[in-house]
Write a protein that binds this DNA or RNA. Structure first.
Lengths: 220, 220
DNA sequence: GACATAATCAACAATGTGTTGAGTAAGTCG
DNA sequence: CGACTTACTCAACACATTGTTGATTATGTC
């Protein structure tokens, strides 16, 4: 599934093979979209705004992208790449120092959210009408949920966490909480947890939910 | 702040004083909106759809409501009324049987969500563009958060719950979790907690977050 | 029966989306 | 070099949706 407007794409998301100015135009559209999304919601940005911002006419926009959603999806692909880098490694720290591990997970999520909040907010908005965007969101959630599920099961297996509800269900609930809480805090729509407390508040909930105590059981 | 289209309303949300057929028309519009919202999103319903559904022309719609959002707000007012009834009383059960109290809170929220999911989903959608709808949502959240905060503080005061992060911050996070998780489960957009487990999963998170243990400390 | 006002809609203005069809400019091959 | 291809561009069109205006018809009231 590609997001461009032609049948013979060169790259996975890009336009068909082209002379250099074409790539520039495509990047201009993406840059314009990213810039405008920091000011207003996707629905308040017209295709004409994107076209003018990139110095082209509206029909020309359709040469590069199928729709406004396609632009967003290309922007989201960039986020995916960045996140999959941030997510690799550091899994062994769970055994050494669980509290630190979980805190770092939360900080990583928080940082990711903060860095891309305008694009992610647009994804939430567009998710109501675009199945593709919805799909992207659920894939993204699945990455974090799977990671969380494995970590909870690992902790239960080695005895630092007691048995409890299905690990995946807890993972879904905890990650959903992060989503909402970070979103509210970063966009500032009340009621929200103050930014200074948000990580520690969520950490408390994660730790008590997983370990059924304020801290993990000792392995000794 | 009223949601109708005139300057001299008779009731808080209604049209100006009128002959009886006018009230019927207004109710026809609301019924049409409620019906259509069960099939598709608010953005996919045009004002013409609402007008035709109520057997009137589009301009006539504007005689009764200022906008599509105004119709939604009137629908939301009904939800508010129903919820404020459901919320009263039963606060003393917290002392007698805390686990039961919290479970009943979750069940009440779940029930409310289930009964009004199409209208609430529309409120989420419209919240992105309408400040009034956003306001309604934050007021609604505030009701539950305040209630939760008071309950947590009461439990800490009598020693069944240990000190921890600010009660209000926990209340915000826990209620945000409920929102997201119930929403996903009821609309079925994966990844979601299965409906059969959703209350128990959330209850586990609430109890461990508040009591920092699988169950409240004994008062003995 | 004259008068206010509730209720209604045809027609208009404005904005946004997506398409068509005709063009220009740059490379490629004979 | 000249014919041909293909990337690229946009004026103009067809539609859909929103919100407004101004004229018109019912309804009750004094």
């Amino acid at each position: 599934m590609t997001h461009d407007g032609t049948a013979t794409p060169r790259s996975s998301r890009g336009r068909r093979a082209s002379r250099p100015t074409g790539d520039d135009r495509e990047l201009d559209i993406l840059a314009t979209a990213a810039k405008l999304l920091q000011e207003r919601a996707l629905s308040e940005i017209s295709i004409d705004d994107l076209a003018r911002g990139a110095g082209i006419s509206r029909p020309t926009f359709y040469f590069y992208f199928r729709s406004k959603d396609a632009v967003l999806l290309t922007l989201l692909d960039r986020v995916t790449e960045e996140i999959s880098e941030a997510v690799t490694g550091e899994f062994e720290r769970l055994r050494e120092d669980p509290v630190r591990y979980w805190r770092e997970c939360l900080v990583a999520t928080h940082t990711t959210y903060g860095a891309h909040r305008s694009v992610l907010a647009a994804a939430v908005e567009a998710g109501r009408t675009s199945a593709e965007v919805r799909r992207w969101r659920s894939d993204m959630k699945e990455i974090w949920i799977t990671r969380t599920t494995l970590a909870i099961e690992a902790e239960r297996a080695r005895g630092t966490a007691p048995p409890g509800p299905r690990a995946r269900d807890l993972a879904i609930a905890l990650n959903a909480m992060n989503d909402s809480v970070f979103y509210a805090t970063l966009t500032g729509d009340e009621p929200a947890v103050p930014a200074s407390d948000v990580v520690e508040t969520l950490l408390h909930t994660w730790l008590t939910t997983i370990y059924q105590a304020a801290r993990p059981a000792s392995t000794a």
